[in-house]
Simulated assay, not measured.
Amino acid sequence: MRTPGSQEAAWSAKITSSSGEGGGTVADASLIGSTGVVIVATRGSNGSGEVLLETGGTGETFLAWSTTPLPKGEQVLVTDVRGARTVEVEAISEFGADSAGKG
């Protein structure tokens, strides 16, 4: 006999842990080193922005935090993952030209 709500809980767990293609988690460390572009400016410690990253061959948006404000259009490197769909980024220019090819 199925417990009421058990299937709903299972679906919820799958949705929050799967990124779709490939079945990996969107909050996993594989995002570290990825590159992308700021689509909503970050405000440094005053607030997050939004970045577009290529993951699994498709573009996905993530909330993005940075130590300094970053303008829309800035090319960024993911330096850490804070949780589901939230990353920490730095401007690629801060790492030099060698980092630009990663991701």
Rank of each mutant, 00 (worst) to 15 (best):
V37E: 14
K14F: 09
T68P: 01
T79P: 00
S45V: 06
G5D: 04
S17G: 07
T68K: 14
T55A: 11
G5E: 08
D28G: 14
V89G: 03
G44T: 10
A13P: 00
I92E: 13
E8Y: 09
G33Y: 01
T67F: 09
G22F: 03
T35E: 02
V38I: 12
D28E: 08
T86E: 13
G103C: 01
R82L: 09
A13Y: 08
S66A: 15
K72M: 05
G23D: 06
G33R: 05
A64E: 04
K102I: 08
P71I: 08
E54I: 11
K102W: 09
G20I: 08
A27M: 07
I32N: 05
G59C: 13
T68E: 09
A64C: 11
G56R: 15
F95C: 01
A100Y: 01
T55S: 11
I15K: 13
G36A: 06
T25N: 12
D28T: 07
L31V: 01
T42G: 02
A91H: 00
G22E: 13
A10S: 12
P69A: 15
S30C: 04
A29Q: 06
E60S: 10
P4S: 11
T16N: 06
S18G: 12
G20A: 03
K14I: 02
T68Q: 11
P4Q: 07
E21T: 05
L53G: 02
G49A: 06
T58A: 15
P69D: 02
S34I: 01
I92C: 14
E60T: 06
R43A: 15
P69G: 14
K14V: 05
E8T: 01
G59Y: 12
W11E: 11
I15S: 10
T61I: 07
L63T: 07
E50P: 03
K72A: 14
R82Q: 11
G59S: 08
S30E: 05
T86K: 03
F62P: 12
S45Q: 00
D80S: 09
G59F: 05
A97I: 11
T55N: 05
D80Q: 06
V87P: 02
I39Q: 02
L53P: 03
G59K: 08
G24M: 04
T16I: 09
T58M: 13
G36E: 01
G49H: 04
S99V: 09
E8A: 15
E60Q: 05
T58S: 13
L53Y: 00
R2L: 15
G44I: 05
V78P: 10
E54N: 08
M1S: 11
R43Q: 13
A97F: 02
A84L: 15
K14S: 04
Q75N: 07
E88W: 10
A13L: 14
E50G: 10
N46G: 13
S30T: 08
K102G: 10
T3E: 14
S30P: 00
K102A: 07
A100D: 09
L31M: 04
K102R: 08
V87I: 14
G36L: 07
P4F: 07
R43I: 00
S18A: 12
K72P: 03
G36P: 03
S93V: 02
P4G: 03
D80A: 15
S6H: 01
G47A: 07
D98E: 04
S99Y: 12
E88P: 00
T3A: 11
T3C: 10
S45W: 00
V26L: 15
A10G: 00
